[in-house]
Amino acid sequence: MPTNRTLTVNGLSIHIAEQGEGPLVLLLHGWPETSHSWRHQMQPLADAGYHVVAPDQRGYGRSDRPEESDQYTILHLVGDVVGLIDALGAKEAIIVGHDFGAPVAWTTAMLRPDLIRGVAGISFPPTQRSPVPPTSAFRQHFGDDFYFLYFQHPEIPEAEFTRDLRTTFRTLLGGDNTQPVSTQVPAGSGFLDLFTEPDVLPDWLTEQDIDVAVESFTRSGFTGGLNWYRNFDRNWSLLAPWQGATITPPALYLIGGADHISRAFTDPAAIADFASDLRGIIDIPEAGHWVQLQRPDDVNTALLDFFKQL
């Protein structure tokens, strides 16, 4: 079973769940998740001989939540990964990220390849820096109602998501995410309107899992996590010195075969242009966006096969 403790990283208290001994593997969750989203990976990876660590990243769960939105840039998030590696007494790590955790993993591998044995991204591929600020690119390609732009509004998405936390997580996590959905949030509607709350949760998600999410976000709120999105343009400016840089550590990409959200605005085929040592792009059949929860055995097998190559 995983154990829990708190580490001091870059002046913040970062909560981690950890299990096993051996080479360090960091599992980075996305939005709106916590370390609990890796509950099906901890034991199998630990049993395979790895020290598996899943943090609540800054702004989430039991970790600290700086108030200022500019404390959630990609450089802060990468800095937390670097700090975690050091605080855990390791010289290097394999990093795996899902959803928004994937850009953190990809960027860490790009900026600090000396620390990264290998990098795996799930549900979000690495992307080249755009020629214009991201919010401008989003408007150009997807229109003013694209949900990333909805997340830019202060307080509005927070009010939507906290109105009824149980409904929020039953809808976001338990709704059928294997069917095509819109990425548009028109004026007068909300992000949750893109999904339908199920009467009965899917077999890979329990009411106890919903309890964990409700408890976690009752404590943390949503602002910290949404501030990750609110730094898109700031990140674009900060990463200007790495324009054209590539990811050099061995890399793997996994995506659910029915993950229509990620496929709506990303191109997995372009990964090879960005990752110079790409070991594979793996589609997990019939899985949606929460692939590591829906098809844990397939994800664990793919990750361990990749780890063995490193």
Rank of each mutant, 00 (worst) to 15 (best):
Y60F: 09
V52N: 09
G61E: 12
L77P: 00
D70N: 13
G49N: 03
Y50D: 12
Y72I: 02
Y50F: 13
D64Y: 01
H51M: 10
P66S: 01
G59E: 00
V82R: 13
V81W: 02
D56M: 06
V53T: 06
S63R: 01
D70V: 06
L75Y: 10
G79E: 06
S63F: 00
I74Y: 07
V52S: 07
Q71T: 11
H76T: 11
P66E: 04
R65C: 13
H51S: 12
R62Y: 09
G79N: 08
I74A: 15
L75G: 02
P55T: 13
D56Q: 01
R62C: 11
A48K: 08
T73L: 06
E68A: 14
E67G: 15
R58D: 06
L77Q: 08
Y60E: 12
V78S: 10
A54F: 06
V52C: 12
V52R: 06
D56S: 00
S63P: 01
R58C: 05
D70G: 07
A54R: 03
D80H: 03
V81M: 10
Y72T: 01
Y72W: 01
D70F: 02
V53H: 04
G79L: 04
Y60D: 13
E68F: 09
P55S: 14
R58K: 03
G61F: 04
I74R: 13
P55V: 14
E67Q: 14
D64E: 06
R65S: 15
G59N: 02
G61A: 07
A54Q: 05
H51D: 10
V81Q: 11
V53Y: 01
L75S: 05
V78W: 09
Q57C: 14
D70M: 08
V81L: 09
E68S: 11
D70A: 13
Y72H: 05
Q57H: 06
Y50L: 14
V53W: 00
D80A: 04
G61L: 10
A54W: 01
S63N: 06
H76A: 12
D64I: 04
Q57K: 03
D70C: 07
V78G: 10
G79H: 03
G61Q: 04
L75W: 08
V78Y: 08
H76V: 04
G49S: 07
P66V: 00
V82L: 06
E67N: 14
R65Q: 12
P66H: 00
S63H: 01
S63G: 02
R65W: 05
G49T: 04
V78I: 12
V52Y: 07
S69R: 14
R62V: 11
P55K: 15
Q57L: 14
Q57W: 05
V82C: 10
V78M: 08
L77V: 02
Q71A: 15
T73V: 05
D64M: 02
E67A: 14
S69T: 12
G59A: 00
D80S: 05
Y72P: 13
S69P: 10
